[in-house]
């Protein structure tokens, strides 16, 4: 399923900082097409920061982020726009536009980037909402949706232009186990049937084991990757005791890590 010949995303020697505060230092990894790739780690280790660098919201201090052959850090305006249309992003809060209905949120990118007739745009909206099981919520405002519905609507919006890569920031955080499992199933379904590449930031262990092909684990003390590989492998045979503890949900004995 995963094509391991040519990486779709390459992160090379990335160092990220907020002013003087270095969050990530010299990070490198590759993501392959069709892979469900999870960035995980404890709170405050820089998972969301890494994601925001990968989608081009922040510029790294040092390093390259190459997506489908284009370095998003140095890309010109046109190249960057072309690249942005190849991926969809779902934010932790959903980030649906509060003044628009769910349908309008999805239609927005179609109106801006395509010249499709209205009827077809409506049909695409309905299709995308059906994909996430929200076909009845098209005319609702984001404020009328529950947390899980917001995330699913945001995922429908992220999938509107049929992207190659989908970035998800904490897709199952704060959701009940059933909704969380539904989202996991949706991710797996999309990854396997549409062969999309998913880059997910999460620390929900159940979701990680359910969907991830491979994970990288960040550590806030070293500001780097402490472990990389399939999650079950890391849980059972990682050399790093902290990594094993993380996957086995064990509190450190001295509470001082």
């Amino acid at each position: 399923m995963v094509n391991k010949t040519q990486p779709i995303i390459t992160v090379e020697n990335l160092t990220a900082a907020y002013e003087d505060n270095v969050i990530l230092e010299d990070i490198s990894f590759e993501i392959f097409p069709g892979e469900v790739f999870i960035v995980l780690g404890g709170s405050g280790c820089g998972k969301s920061t890494l994601l925001k660098h990968m989608i081009g919201l922040y510029k790294p201090l040092v390093g390259r982020i190459v997506i489908e052959g284009t370095d998003i850090v140095t890309a010109g305006e046109t190249q960057r726009h072309e690249l942005l249309r190849k991926f969809g992003v779902m934010y932790q809060s959903g980030a649906l536009f509060g003044s628009m209905t769910v349908n309008e949120n999805i239609r927005l990118v179609l109106e801006e980037f395509t010249s499709l007739p209205d009827e077809l745009m409506d049909l695409i909206c309905t299709m995308k909402l059906k994909l996430v099981g929200l076909e009845a919520a098209g005319n609702m405002m984001p404020s009328e949706l529950s947390g899980g519905m917001k995330k699913r609507a945001a995922m429908a919006r992220a999938l509107t232009l049929d992207p190659d890569i989908v970035f998800l920031d904490e897709p199952s955080a704060g959701l009940d186990p059933i909704t969380s499992a539904q989202i996991d199933q949706l991710i797996l379904h999309l990854a396997r049937s549409l062969r999309l590449t998913f880059v997910i930031v999460s620390h929900e262990l159940s979701s990680i084991f359910a969907v991830a092909d491979r994970v990288v684990m960040l550590d806030k003390h070293t500001k780097n990757i402490v472990a990389a590989g399939p999650p079950a492998e890391l849980r059972d045979s990682s050399d790093n005791p902290w990594v094993r503890r993380f996957f086995n949900r064990e509190a450190p004995t001295n509470l001082k890590h």
């Binding site: 081009g56 980030a95 536009f97």
Partner: peptide
């Protein structure tokens, strides 16, 4: 400002708008 806090501005940027 509320849109910025709710990451809606980030969402617009990553949509290419």
């Amino acid at each position: 400002g509320t849109m910025k806090v709710n990451e809606e501005i980030d969402a617009l940027t990553t949509m290419g708008l």
